[in-house]
Each structure stands twice: as structure tokens, then as C-alpha cells.
């Protein structure tokens, strides 16, 4: 039987190789099928893109937060360093004051020692002049 001239063909319908009735011509059908397939793949890809993007955004957000945190930390540290130098300054002042105090004390003790040494000298001299020469 001539495939071309079957009544199905005439009605625009055809049979495929498996002898199933087809409304569209197999070529178009195939193309449609392909299109459908492609669309699905496309959808899948889009979906996967979305998830990837979502993950990416999340990552970036996390990163941004981390950066912010670090930034804050850095600012804090800088402030701490600044204040530390101020603190050191005041500590230095305090120590300087203490040193001045101690130095004054040392001078006082030095003077005291000198005077006591002079007393020893005086007494030795007294002994030599008045006792030894007897």
C-alpha cells in the first residue's frame, strides 16, 4: 500500500514507523519534541542557576558581613591603639612623677649620708687630735 495515498495521509494525518497515528508530521513532531526537551533543559538550567546564584549571594552576604566585622574590629583596634598610646602617655607621666619623687628621695638620702659621713670625719679628727696625741 502506497503510504502517500492512504486516507490518513489525505486527512493530513500520518502513521509513524510504529504505525501509530500522528496528527503532526513526524518531522515537526520531532522538532516539537526537541523544543520541549530543550525547554525542560533550559528550565532546569535556570533552576540550577537560581540555586547557584542563591548560594553565591548568600556567600557574598556572608563575606560582606565578615568584612564588616573585620572592619569594625580594625576600627576598634585602631581606637584601642590610639587610646593605648594615650594611656601609655599618662602612665609615663605617672611613672615620671614617681621617678621625680624617688629622685628627690634619693637626693635627700644622699645629703643625709654625706652629712653623716662628715660627722664620722669630725669624730675621727677629734679622736686623732685629742686622744691619740695624749
Amino acid at each position: 500500500m502506497d503510504e502517500e495515498n492512504t486516507p490518513v495521509t489525505v486527512a493530513g494525518m500520518q502513521f509513524d514507523e510504529l504505525s501509530k497515528i500522528r496528527v503532526l508530521d513526524p518531522e515537526k513532531h520531532e522538532q516539537t519534541e526537541e523544543l520541549g526537551e530543550e525547554c525542560r533543559t533550559f528550565l532546569e538550567k535556570i533552576n540550577s542557576f537560581h540555586t547557584v546564584m542563591g548560594g553565591f549571594v548568600e556567600l557574598v552576604d556572608r563575606l560582606a558581613k565578615a568584612v564588616d566585622d573585620e572592619k569594625m574590629k580594625a576600627i576598634g583596634a585602631r581606637a584601642a591603639v590610639d587610646s593605648l598610646s594615650k594611656k601609655r602617655q599618662s602612665e609615663e607621666q605617672l611613672l615620671q612623677a614617681m621617678i621625680a619623687e624617688k629622685r628627690a628621695e634619693l637626693e635627700r638620702l644622699q645629703v643625709e649620708q654625706d652629712s653623716l659621713e662628715r660627722v664620722i670625719q669630725d669624730q675621727d679628727q677629734f679622736i686623732t687630735t685629742h686622744v691619740m696625741n695624749k
Binding site: 635627700r108 638620702l109 645629703v111 643625709e112 660627722v119 669624730q123
Partner: peptide, 20 residues
């Protein structure tokens, strides 16, 4: 005894001998 001690204006204590 044989000494006399003075506290100077700057706080230093000085001791001097006194003729015995």
C-alpha cells in the same frame, strides 16, 4: 649626744657633729 639633726627645706635630713 654629740649630734644635731636638721630637716632642710627640701626634706633632706642633715646631721652635724656637736663638740663633745
Amino acid at each position: 649626744g654629740n649630734t644635731c639633726s636638721v630637716r632642710r627645706a627640701d626634706g633632706a635630713s642633715m646631721t652635724f657633729s656637736v663638740p663633745p
